[in-house]
């Protein structure tokens, strides 16, 4: 998957599409296999980038366990009181129990920088279905598997014994623990949909046409073109050593103002250093290519890259996984 961060508006439609489809069962209330967070920010789970795991020079690195509070507990509301008149006229909608201290996208739109040069962008995240998955390597029971034929990483819940070594090992902290069923659970990349030729729910539901789907080794598909051919889509935190298969087109920032209040095109509001810290040094090349191709487009010249990113034809975004789910028989 490739996500174009220049187009993500943080609407969380992907998050809800995933929630509706996959995480409504027992013990899954607090799970959001897909999250969208404002960057810079502490993220979901809180401070996940400081929790370790993954590999360095091929060696497993110690990893911390993200607490349920770090992810954010599922909130319960006083719906009974508000909607069924068991409260009085002053009753208003509120969270039951203790006031939460953290949750998904808790630091929404805080961002970074100082006015008028402040900035933020949205970072959608799901399991990266890594080529070298730390979760697979960590499990002593071989309960986590990278599927041979499509590369999707899945947890075999019949083998999982709830030890949670995968959660410590995953440097992206995208594995949840189901405390009712005592098994770890995570994004399954909508494999039952893909097996029927239907793109992931998060991708199809995205109103911003942010998400491209397909096989990286399909030379006609968008993933190959954006990652391999144009080199503009990059993995998040490549230094974690797991080789993610979710890639991001980095955000081009608006320019800063100079002291006279004029726009200074030489200084982007999002510091290069910050983007390098997320996507590695290649991000600078990616941004240069994006700027150059955008400029070509502005000049009226044709740009394959801009055409792909604009996604004129919605169906072209899905690398052949363009079946309409409403036309299929689901058993």
């Amino acid at each position: 998957m490739v996500m174009d961060l220049n187009k993500c508006i943080g609407c969380q439609t992907c998050t809800i599409a995933c929630k509706q489809l996959w995480t409504r069962n027992e013990g899954m209330d607090y799970m959001w296999w897909n999250t969208v967070n404002t960057m810079p920010g502490k993220g979901t789970p809180r401070n996940w980038e400081e929790m370790g795991g993954g590999f360095r020079d091929g060696d497993s690195q110690p990893g911390l366990m993200p607490s349920t509070t770090d992810f954010g507990e599922a909130w319960e509301f006083n719906h009974d009181e508000v909607f069924y008149n068991t409260g009085d006229s002053k009753t208003h909608l509120k969270i039951k129990g203790e006031k939460p201290q953290w949750g998904p996208n808790w630091d929404e739109d805080e961002g970074g920088g100082q006015y008028p040069d402040n900035y933020y962008f949205y970072l959608p995240r799901l399991c990266n279905h890594c080529t070298d998955p730390a979760c697979v390597a960590a499990c002593p029971r071989k309960a986590v598997e990278k599927r041979e034929h499509d590369g999707i990483v899945v947890i075999n819940e019949d083998r999982c014994r709830g030890y949670r070594f995968c959660m410590e090992a995953c440097p992206y902290k995208k594995i949840y623990f189901n405390h009712k069923r005592k098994v770890s659970q995570k994004c399954i990349f909508c494999f039952p949909r893909l097996e029927k030729g239907v793109a992931n729910a998060c991708a199809r539901q995205c109103p911003g046409r942010v998400r491209f789907v397909g096989y990286r080794d399909d030379p006609e598909g968008p993933i190959h073109k954006l990652v391999n051919k144009w080199g503009v889509a990059l993995p998040l935190h490549p230094e974690y050593g797991t080789e993610p298969n979710v890639f991001y087109v980095p955000p081009l920032a608006p320019a800063m103002y100079d002291e006279q209040g004029n726009i200074d095109h030489s200084r982007p509001r999002i510091p290069d250093d910050y983007l390098v810290s997320l996507f590695g040094p290649q991000v600078l090349d990616s941004l240069s290519i994006l700027k150059a191709e955008r400029e070509k487009s502005r000049q009226g010249q044709s740009s394959e890259l801009m055409d792909i990113l604009i996604a004129y034809r919605w169906g072209d975004m899905f690398g052949g996984f363009d079946q309409d789910p409403s036309t299929l028989q689901w058993t």
Binding site: D59, P62, G63, A134, A138, F165, E168
Partner: peptide
């Protein structure tokens, strides 16, 4: 003697 490198590292 733990069975995976990740467990040993931790």
């Amino acid at each position: 003697l733990q069975p995976t490198a990740a467990i040993r590292a931790n």
